[in-house]
Amino acid sequence: MEGLTIAGAVSAVLGAALTVCGAVLVMRPAPRMTPQALDAGTVPAAVGGPATDAASAGAGSPPVRLEIPELRVRARVLPVGVRPDGTLQVPPSGRDLGWWRGGAAPGSATGTVVIAGHVDTAREGPGALFGLRGVRIGGRVNVRSIDGRTRDYRIVARRAYPKQRVPSSVFAQDSPARMVLITCTGSFDRRTSSYSHNLVVYARPD
């Protein structure tokens, strides 16, 4: 199926809203959520200013592979870069995941590591995060970084939010170190090619 939509609410703290729709992310300041094309959306700026490359800032190390042993998921993780016009290309393949490098990287002392992926695609069927809604609390997420280290996270919560009501706290960069995995869930509307909800799985360093 096409039309993956990960939509975020307006963030008073971050000063922007987050939406991941289809294959493109758009970075732009936004006082409120506005309707977006199915292949575009917005990501939040880092606290206190625009998004920065966490790796170049020396905060942790960029992820290159993510594993969820319980689901037998082993997916490549690609960094999401910001173009001058504010757009980012999310990996088109449902087998790959995208790491927002404007947020924290694995190993950062604080902040949220944001990793998003397709629940499914028309060409490939189920994506890497297709089974995420069934993951158990207490399950492990293992992330291998470009520095060669594997960092372990423990799943602590799983929430489904209506796509226009994802709380801004999901993307906080002033939070204790954590990771969020984001994909789609709920009912699929063929008229708009979108899902009704966004699934957010929260994990803490183990």
Rank of each mutant, 00 (worst) to 15 (best):
D39W: 12
A40S: 15
T42V: 03
T42F: 02
T42E: 05
V43I: 10
P44R: 00
A46P: 01
G49S: 04
G49C: 00
P50M: 01
D53C: 09
A54F: 05
A55S: 11
A55K: 08
S56P: 02
S56A: 13
A57C: 01
G60Y: 06
G60V: 06
S61T: 11
V64R: 11
V64K: 15
R65W: 00
E67G: 00
P69M: 03
E70I: 08
E70A: 13
L71K: 04
L71A: 08
R72D: 08
R74T: 00
R74W: 00
A75Y: 02
R76Y: 07
V77W: 12
L78E: 15
V80K: 02
V80Y: 07
V80C: 12
G81P: 13
G81I: 13
V82I: 15
R83P: 14
D85S: 11
D85Y: 08
D85Q: 08
T87Y: 13
L88V: 12
Q89I: 11
P91C: 10
P91F: 10
P92T: 15
S93G: 13
S93L: 10
S93W: 11
G94K: 08
G94T: 09
L97N: 04
G98A: 14
G98N: 11
W99A: 06
W99R: 10
R101N: 13
G102K: 05
A104D: 07
P106C: 05
G107K: 06
G107P: 05
A109C: 08
T110R: 14
V113E: 12
V113P: 03
V114A: 07
V114M: 04
A116I: 03
A116C: 02
G117K: 03
V119F: 09
V119H: 10
D120S: 15
A122C: 04
E124H: 14
G125H: 12
G127E: 12
A128K: 02
G131F: 03
G134A: 07
V135L: 07
G138Q: 03
G138M: 04
